[in-house]
Design a protein around this nucleic acid. Structure first.
Lengths: 245, 245
DNA sequence: CGTCGTATTGAATGGGTTCAAGTAGCGTGG
DNA sequence: CCACGCTACTTGAACCCATTCAATACGACG
């Protein structure tokens, strides 16, 4: 746990949040090394069409995955936080079918696929943890689909905020009812499938209803129960070890 | 390839469509056995909340996965065809976070998780194929999100039809430009996040535009290029071995 | 202290929903 | 063989959530 040496502590913490690991397994996992790269605000880390030979662990900072449509519109389908491996799928899908970009400045560790493969061979249970992680990724997409298909703007927003908060909480990145809020209204709109203007009005309503408070880069949940209900949020789909929330 | 013995030929064909397999691997895969169950029209095969101890291969017939919202609305997020393993994720996610149901009558083979695990241990490349399959599942969800978030009714419908047709084609279930069409307009609406009424009007427009022809249980693509454009369909996200379409 | 990105507000417009009927097709049983 | 009933499909009209367009305010940073 030496902060000066590149060390994937966030990765260990994250995998621990979804699957129990033995001390041995944690040690092996903590022994992974890769190339550390800093990234700035709003940079593409991996692009649609790329054929990556490594995957990246977010050490700190925030990222998101997206696709652009023919008409130049952007759809965001996931946000990523410390410990996530947003492009783990590239281990088995050669060509990226979407892009990964940063929301804030931060740091990532790039681990060669070959290293991951060797690790998985040596320690099958870590392989299971990785596979499980990609399956939870898919579960989050399913819930995102429900959100877009069957809820209107208020519900969508409430759901997104609940999910984001709970995921931060699961890796110890919340402070009471306060957490970081790295999104612009434009990014929220592209995630929720609504216009920026409507994001603005929706957030105002939610503040007026006493559900949340927003400061430039932080979100305070003022009424968790109310927010949960508005978004029909049930964290079961996150498959956390602690039935969380 | 004895049709009288339960044999997962569709599974072999399906995995072959996404990853090259050696004859040995195909033999091993073809050697899998499980319990054959017939299912009727519109039956739940696996329910949200279940803790399955086996996963199922669709041998023939069609299925879909869905969730119900608090308000009782249904969101469908995938359709499944011969060879698919719609609940493969249950191998690593104990509790089902959604349900699996049949669209038509058909037949499925239920394979115990333990059998799958043993197979994966013995033949890592088949394990890779399964993992890859779940990753493609996730890729399809991502595209579904783009569809719901960033396209309007016509585009959504066109995209869904293109995807369905190409997936059938990839396992040899199309006949020229004709394929089966197992959905009701209600089911299409629940998949596309639009009302049944609007599904109806959208389909009529598409027929009028000469893109498709519909008969009770079959779909004819009259103008593939037009349909592809309307839905901005690019099959790359399906990660088929033949860059298909 | 100006500038660029982000947030906010108002008004007109539109895609899709909802409600409410009505029609067509098909399997079943009298 | 036809009546019945069920399910799926079709149509019209009023309504509404969210978009779009067009300004305006804010605020961080060089």
């Amino acid at each position: 746990m030496n902060a000066r040496t590149p060390h994937p502590a966030p990765l260990v913490r994250k995998l621990e949040s979804i699957l129990g690991l033995s001390q041995d397994e944690k040690d092996v996992l903590g022994g992974i090394r890769g190339t550390i790269k800093k990234f700035g605000r709003r940079e593409d880390l991996v692009r649609q069409g790329d054929r990556p030979s490594e995957c990246c662990v977010i050490l700190h900072g925030f990222a998101y995955r997206y696709k652009l449509t023919g008409g130049g519109k952007r759809q965001i389908f996931s946000f990523h936080i410390s410990g996530d491996i947003p492009d783990l799928q590239s281990l088995h899908l050669e060509v990226m079918d979407h892009s990964l970009a940063s929301l804030t400045a931060g740091e990532a560790m790039f681990i060669p696929h070959e290293t991951v493969r060797a690790l998985v061979r040596r320690c099958p249970r870590i392989g299971d943890a990785f596979w499980r992680d990609t399956l939870i990724d898919a579960a989050v997409f399913r819930e995102w689909i429900v959100n877009l298909g069957r809820r209107e703007a208020h519900g969508r927003m409430a759901h997104l905020l609940c999910e984001f908060y709970v995921r931060l909480q699961s890796v110890g990145l919340t402070n009471g009812s306060v957490c970081e809020m790295p999104f612009t209204q434009n990014e929220l709109g592209d995630a929720l499938g609504i216009s920026t203007v409507h994001v603005n009005r929706t957030l105002q309503d939610m503040r007026a209803a006493g559900l949340i408070t927003l400061q430039p880069r932080s979100l305070t949940i003022e009424d968790w129960e109310g927010l949960r209900e508005a978004g029909e949020f049930d964290p079961a789909y996150l498959h956390l070890r602690t039935g969380a929330a």
